[in-house]
Design a protein around this nucleic acid. Sequence first.
RNA 1: GGGUGGUUAGCUCAGUUGGUUUAGAGCGUCUGGUUUACACCCAGAAGGUCACAGGUUCGAUUCCUGUACCACCCACCA
Length: 928
Amino acid sequence: MLPKAYDPKACEDKIYALWEESGAFMADAKSKKEPFVISMPPPNATGQLHLGHAVMLALEDIFTRFARMQGKEALWVPGTDHAAIATESVVIKKIQKEEKIKDPRAHYGREKLVAKIAEFVDISRGVIRSQVRKMGASCDWSRERYTLDASLNRCVNEVFKKMYADGLIYRGQRIVNWDPKMQTTVSDDEIEYVEEKAPYYTFQHGPFQISTARPETKFGDKYVVMHPDDERYKQYKDGDTFECEWINGRITATVIKDDKAIDPTFGTGCMTITPWHDMTDFDLAERRGLKREQIIGFDGRLLDVAGEFSGLPIEEARSRVVEKLKEKGLLVKVDENYVHRIAVSYRGKGIVEPQIKEQWFIDVNKQVVEWPASAKATAGKKKKKMSLKQVMQDVIRSKDIRIIPERFEKTYFHWIDNLRDWCVSRQIWWGHRIPVYYCPKCVDHGTPAAEGMRDSGLGQGGIIVSGQSLAQCPKCGGPVVQDPDTLDTWFSSGLWTWSTLIDPSQAQDKSLTLRELLDRSPDFQKFHPTTVMETGYDILFFWVARMILMTTYTTGQIPFKHVYLHGLVRTRDGKKMSKSDPSTCIDPLEIIPKYGADALRLSMIVGQSPGNDFRLYEEKIAGYRNFINKLWNASRFVLMQCEKAGVDPKGVGDRASGVGNLSVADRALLSALQELIADVTDGLATYRLSETGERLYSFVWDFFCDWYLELSKGESNPAVLVQGLRTIVHLLHPYCPFVTEEIWASIAPKGSGQLIREPWPLAEKKLIDREAEGQLQLLISVITAIRSLRAEYGVVPEAKVPVTVRATRFGKFLEEHQSHVLRLANVSELTVTAESPTHRHGIVSTFLNWADIHLSLEGVVDLVKVKANLESERAQLEKFLSGVRAKLGNEQFLARAKTEVIETEQQKLKDGEEKLKKIEERLKALRD
RNA sequence: GGGUGGUUAGCUCAGUUGGUUUAGAGCGUCUGGUUUACACCCAGAAGGUCACAGGUUCGAUUCCUGUACCACCCACCA
């Protein structure tokens, strides 16, 4: 006999191993079946499984299992991400701590440090893999990829080369976000803004008053900007110069009139600018061709321009500059309560300083992309040259890609509108190295060397962008040097849906072009574009948008058809779970052994809607653990019934025919199952997972267990029990794969395989039996009504009570099926009659639409209470009826409402009045 | 400053095209129960003017406008 309580610990790992060994997760590129594909958002290779991953895995596993059972060629590609900055900073910190080395970069040098990081990643990558398995993820491990795999690196290089050739990648001196802590640039999206109170100073700058929160940047303030229409400054003309006393002596400054950069209603209406360290000022300087000067070094200390302050870190310099200006009498006022926002690096948490630096950029506005790319997609559309931005907009606008929930399309468009050229170079070592080589001899290529080259003292040189690694200059045969920078991690992540489908052995063949590589990779041919991209809405910009950008450009295909965005998991109090406060966190790895992966999955899916955050706490998970246990016990009950009847559950056939005589309950169950199949199939196909999960939950618990199984105790047909349970575990399998697979093992027909490979049930119309469902409903309402009366009047549970039912239409049916009523409502004798009962004392009643139910409680019941109950019921009913009458008395309603609606209302009135009449009769009888 | 979402039972949340008797679920609460599948259970019950104010409509939790509060995203107010 199976244990009373389901023990996930005893089953889950074992079942997962069976699935994996049997090859159930593996997809076949040669198959003729319709493909269904998901690229798993790769967790960081150094990471631990957290709830964000757990949600993602649960959702994607449901999609995948459903598709697989539906007979599609389902492929779910797992992988891990090298997470450039995140990983490098983790390892550097680790070395600093464990090996007491202050500057691991300097200490080890590039090659050794990269090797150390790789070693660390190798070890920790296995951790996340095993954790993904714990969730029950049915992904194809034979196709696991890593963003730094050789074949993926090949893709990265080829894409870079192609973009460079198309003029989409350029090198430029532009303002970037510099993280002095990590010593690298970071992208616009990897910056958080934190509000901070800081003093806000106003200084006298010649004839003008200017305000700033950053006095330490003000050394190069050679320009004063004001609005051309500002009356206060109309005596100054654009280009006027003036001399004034400033931090380090007298300077000459120029007046700039600009209507775009300045808001005349703000502050004094004029400002000085720092183009080197401010995005807005940089734009203005670009526009007007103004000089720019670096004030702060890349190490976060002031440069020589600061004179006596040179070499000071920002914080210290600030107060001392203010002090000096104050001494000179140039400090006008200080506002201590000014709130401004400082930019903080998402990863390193260091304060980001804008800097002008020579970097590699992707031009998002240059119109060189042919779109739509394929001839097939071109039907009805004109091929146009578009910019990357335009393609990104087009694929969403044309509904080639659908975002769920739809409202995120707006957010997406807004982000694209504000998108600047994407800085893709990073000054870290961990990642895909930029495939650009410099030949110091071949200056004739005409391109100046990158900053890194100058730093290494090689001076000017020719540039070669290569899809494969180079040791020699193809022109002169001399030695080349590779660009020291690596690529933004999202550059390679942007290729994820297809770079993972490239055949690794083909990728070794350097003679192939990227196009050939795509054409010769069977997986790419079969499985791209992928079907759905499922991820948190927080990385819509980071990742989803970049996959669209990179993939449309490179392959001419969209990366995916649907984007399903889930919400973020929050604590019980609605706060973000943060690693720094472990008490607020729920660790899936602790939850799974305790409640099971199935329960965790359900708790994150049911009651949630896409795109909305949700709160998770242990009671919620326990609730679904209870549900899993309920299902488990239902199956124990089914097996027990089989045993009693001497039926082998595995011998039960699949067809509803040939299982002997069907009771009303049997027919009602089979019928309800068909509707359930239809609802669940439709719900899963349209991504309505919460609603569908709830439907299954309620069906299993409230109908199958509470009614069907209870009725089976009186009269049972083991074959129907088994078939019903089989259908249920099929439908539930995507949601809770472990327990259903475990149950399946006991009830599967002989010769069948694992549930994971079973075909999805199809609704059979001929099993739909409205009559039986209606009849069962009648029985249920009679039993419920009697139970309710018993509780209301305090009848002790063990007392058997005689009941009279006055029913006309269904009297005969009720009489035939009274055994259920006797047992489930604890009734001693059931009298079905067409007349109202003659005895009136000690009777309590309730009125259904089609029957009156009278319980005889002679000598037990308090007549005053009976009367009071009837009166309150009457009052309620009258209130309700007056509402219905008012509606039906309204001419406008009769004239304009739909006929069905009017008919329903009329029916309501009729039923209600009848019921009222009965209550009146009962009250009258009580008075007599 | 712009945008998006939320405001439904004590708590956490569903509610797909406006009308299925009197708005649902889980947890919690209350009453009762060792009914041999399950106390991770069973039976019964209480609890909501669907944030507020207008509007459209015969009819609004559902559509529109505005207000308040909360959350998030974006933005160059020095």
